[in-house]
């Protein structure tokens, strides 16, 4: 486990070093793609004048709310659609259709419906987080072994006890895998949403820096958005390991 982590971290270091050396030796034009050292300087500059905190706050606020609502709705609807056959049969094809629409393609519709404020950006993150969580919960609940449900029933469990002691923990590895997918899809949707009509936010600043040809800030923020995703992913993996130690995802 420790060995795996060291190797994983080493790969990051190697890439940074190669990039840095390539820029320093002018293997390519570093003005177009500044090396990490320049990106960090740019980030420090933006941190000093408060822009960085402002952007992070704006993005994480939208992302946190959208991710939370989307995932919770995904789990709830996943539970209902898997247990109530009629509802499941009715909405499954519809959801598969809707979830295959790229969230970027929805942005014009979202702007028309919600305007260019934060509401629309949150809505698109909700959309992007809902479907992976729904799908995994739906599949996970269907994979619950009938034997486990019957065992609980013959030990005296009511339907509510079965839901909380059998269905939920049994599908938890699936649910957490869905949440893990939602981290990436939600961030993708956030970036797309901030491209249009934002005045702060990580992705907004990437595009603004691009337009102003501040390539050092552009790269810095791009690296930052990856770091946000990585941290969120590590948190979900840590939660999985703690809540569902028997699951493959945690191994």
């Amino acid at each position: 486990m420790i060995r795996r982590r060291v190797v994983g971290a080493a790969a990051f270091v190697v890439i940074v070093v190669i990039w840095q050396v390539a820029a320093a030796t002018r293997l390519y034009n570093p003005v177009l793609l500044p090396p990490p050292s320049s990106a960090i300087v740019a980030l420090e500059r933006l941190a000093a004048n408060g822009t960085l905190a402002n952007d992070l706050g704006a993005s994480l606020g939208r992302y946190g709310v959208g991710f939370g609502i989307g995932c919770m709705a995904g789990v709830l609807v996943g539970f209902i659609t898997s247990r109530v056959r009629l509802i499941g049969d009715a909405v499954e094809p519809l959801f598969h259709y809707l979830r295959s629409i790229p969230s970027v393609a929805l942005i014009p519709a979202v702007i028309v419906l919600f305007g260019i404020g934060d509401g629309g950006k949150v809505a698109i993150v909700v959309w992007a987080c809902f479907f992976p969580t729904w799908l995994n919960t739906f599949l996970g609940m269907r994979e619950v072994r009938p034997e486990h449900i019957r065992t609980a029933q013959s030990l005296g469990a009511s339907p509510i006890v079965v839901a909380f002691h059998v269905l939920l923990p049994s599908s938890l590895p699936y649910i957490l895998a869905g949440v893990r997918t939602a981290i990436a899809t939600g961030l993708f949707a956030l970036a797309a949403g901030e491209m249009i009509g934002a005045s702060a936010g990580i992705a907004f600043r990437i595009f603004q820096s691009y337009e102003l040809f501040h390539t050092d800030a552009m790269i810095g923020y791009t690296l930052l958005i990856g770091a946000v995703a990585l941290v969120a992913d590590l948190i979900v993996v840590a939660i999985t390991t703690r809540l569902a130690p028997w699951s493959i995802a945690a191994k």
């Binding site: 019957r150 013959s154 002691h165």
Partner: peptide, 27 residues
């Protein structure tokens, strides 16, 4: 189904998300 009729399955049917103690005390 009810607890007056205990059912033992071919493949134990223990809940993998509970410890042995938690499995036993479930009822």
């Amino acid at each position: 189904p009810g607890r007056d009729r205990g059912y033992v399955f071919q493949h134990h049917g223990l809940f993998p998300w509970k410890s042995i103690a938690q499995n036993i005390e479930f009822g």
